[in-house]
């Protein structure tokens, strides 16, 4: 009898990974779902009675400048993604949330070696997404950028607002 037949879990290279696909200034970015605590609208943040949550808005950063773009306006679709990684918390403002995407590790493309600057710390790879690509953000870097926003609050179940969960990616791969 094989290990699998006995029901033991076997670490496998084919374990799928799940990403939240967002847009910042027209660029698709992917955040590993494990590092996403919640996705909230600006209204939800402002009207939340929990002062810890309300305060998040003030400490939320836009990665627009760090990523070399300058459109940091807040639009109706603007969401705040609360992140946590290795005990550090922070939040980023994104233009739009497109849903979640489940892929096999083999579908993650490495950043081309010609990219030799600081961006190698920003990204963990790339995903083919629709007719474009989504860059996988390194949560460690994102949280370094939002280090002032650390609250130290322990996390619970990820809370995703509104219609985010219901959105399927256009190529039909959801998780």
């Amino acid at each position: 009898m094989s290990i699998q037949e006995r029901g033991a879990s076997v670490p496998s290279a084919s374990v799928s990974r799940c990403f939240l696909i967002v847009t910042i200034s027209g660029r698709y970015l992917a955040l590993e779902v494990g590092s996403v605590e919640a996705v909230l609208t600006i209204k939800e943040l402002e009207s939340n009675e929990d002062p810890t949550i309300r305060g998040v808005l003030d400490r939320t950063i836009s990665l627009v400048m760090q990523l070399g773009n300058f459109d940091s306006q807040i639009y109706p679709a603007t969401r705040v993604v609360l992140l946590a990684d290795q005990g550090i918390r922070g939040s980023i403002r994104v233009s739009d949330v497109h849903g979640t995407l489940e892929i096999q590790p083999s579908q993650i493309l490495p950043l081309p070696a010609q990219f030799s600057g600081a961006e190698r710390h920003w990204y963990r790879g790339m995903i083919l997404f629709e007719n474009s690509i989504a860059m996988i953000l390194n949560p460690t870097w994102v949280l370094e950028a939002t280090s002032g926003a650390a609250t130290g609050q322990e996390g619970g179940t990820p809370r995703v607002s509104g219609d985010v969960c219901a959105i399927a990616t256009r190529d039909g791969r959801t998780c």
Partner: peptide, 19 residues
């Protein structure tokens, strides 16, 4: 466009499955 600090390399193109 891809945010980058590498001089003159700050974008990619997608050609089928290659980036």
């Amino acid at each position: 466009p891809v945010g980058s600090r590498t001089p003159y390399i700050s974008a990619v193109v997608r050609q089928d499955q290659a980036v």
